[in-house]
């Protein structure tokens, strides 16, 4: 075996590839690019230039690297009144947990490249994705600041609203395919049509739930700066603040991958073939591109919407989006009954 093959077998060992390569490196890259895109797209809609002066020829792209470096080397100020242990660990755990779902989503249909057995992977992915918000609430509480606590409470309210919707709407795909297996779901989509077409209502509900869970506009309520400064992150500085902010985007990316696999056909136009290149790398790139497009849509909404009031967001979630998720689930069951999938 040549060195390249040895390296490839290490890099493309599924847990390493999905957790380290995709989960950390690609996510970081995607987050940086999407932040740049978000700033640039928002700037265009708002008739500004956006990031510009750091390398005008690259349209200010290195600005985000500069920001990243700044966060990394900034002094971390820990106020005396905070609960030190929780204050430091909460953002770290939240970040780790927010990228963990990537490690359980398949990027290919070839069993050799599955990180875990896929039989109940939908449930596992959803279960992991629901843990991280608790640490945001913890971060807010540990900060011992009035604005942090209000932000944390708002986060807690939002969790109760979106969690059920996210789970129910994604499970509608399982209902349609009668399976908790992502592979079955993707195969079903490849045989008939993507679930975004078969079940748009469930997709819409899942989309809104993701928006709520990652505080995207118009649901940017926990951090809304005009009432609560920075919500749970008011007392944070330096890289810990960067982690907190990045965690939301990482979580959005993880959710986008789940949505891409569940609703957008996964690696759909591509049929995974033999070998690492055709069997693993290319399908994973297709999934990542789909997730990226989804994230671009999430980001674009920032320039169109303001934020809802907390009670309006909750009301909307329970009165409008939750019934939507239920209808989506119903559609899934009907589709399964009719044998459409």
């Amino acid at each position: 075996m040549s060195l390249v093959e040895v390296l490839a077998s290490i890099v493309f060992y599924p847990p390493i590839y999905q957790l380290v390569i995709v989960g950390l490196i690609v996510t970081l890259g995607v987050v940086i690019i999407i932040l740049w895109f978000e700033r640039k797209a928002t700037a265009r809609v708002q008739r500004r230039l956006g990031p510009y002066h750091v390398a005008p020829k690259l349209a200010g792209m290195p600005q985000l690297l500069a920001d990243l470096l700044r966060y990394a080397f900034q002094e971390i100020i820990i106020p005396r009144t905070v609960d030190r242990g929780v204050f430091i660990t909460a953002p770290i755990i939240a970040t780790v947990l927010s990228i963990l779902p990537i490690a359980v989503v398949p990027f290919t249909s070839i069993p050799d490249y599955w990180p875990i057995p896929m039989d109940y992977s939908v449930l596992v992915a959803l279960a992991i994705s629901t843990v991280s918000p608790i640490f945001l609430v913890l971060a807010g509480w540990a900060s011992n600041n009035k604005f942090s606590i209000i932000g944390g409470v708002r986060e807690a309210f939002i969790i109760t609203a979106y969690e059920l919707i996210a789970i129910l709407s994604i499970l509608s795909v399982s209902a349609a395919t009668l399976s908790f297996n992502f592979i079955d779901i993707v195969n079903a989509q490849m045989n008939t049509a993507w679930f975004i077409i078969l079940n748009p209502i469930a997709f819409m509900a899942a989309f809104l739930a993701v928006l709520m869970s990652t505080s995207g506009f118009p649901f940017e309520i926990p951090e809304s700066e005009n009432e609560v400064v920075a919500g749970p992150f008011t007392e944070y500085s330096g890289i810990l603040y960067g982690l907190n902010m990045g965690a939301a985007y990482m979580k959005r990316f993880a959710f986008s991958i789940i949505l891409a696999v569940a609703f957008l056909g996964g690696w759909s136009p591509l049929t995974p073939g033999e070998g690492i290149l055709y069997g693993y790398l290319l399908p994973s790139i297709v999934v990542i591109i789909k997730a990226f497009i989804l994230m671009m849509v999430f980001s674009f909404l920032r320039s169109v919407y303001g934020r809802y009031r907390l009670d309006q967001a909750l009301q909307g979630a329970w009165r409008l989006v939750f019934p939507m998720a239920l209808i989506g689930f119903g559609i899934g069951i009907i589709e399964a009954y009719l044998g459409l999938t």
Binding site: V45, Q46, R47, R48, F300, L301, V304
Partner: peptide
Amino acid sequence: AAISLGVKYLIDPKRFT
């Protein structure tokens, strides 16, 4: 209407910075 107006400006920002 709001989103399509946003897209319109995304394509042609009409900026004068």
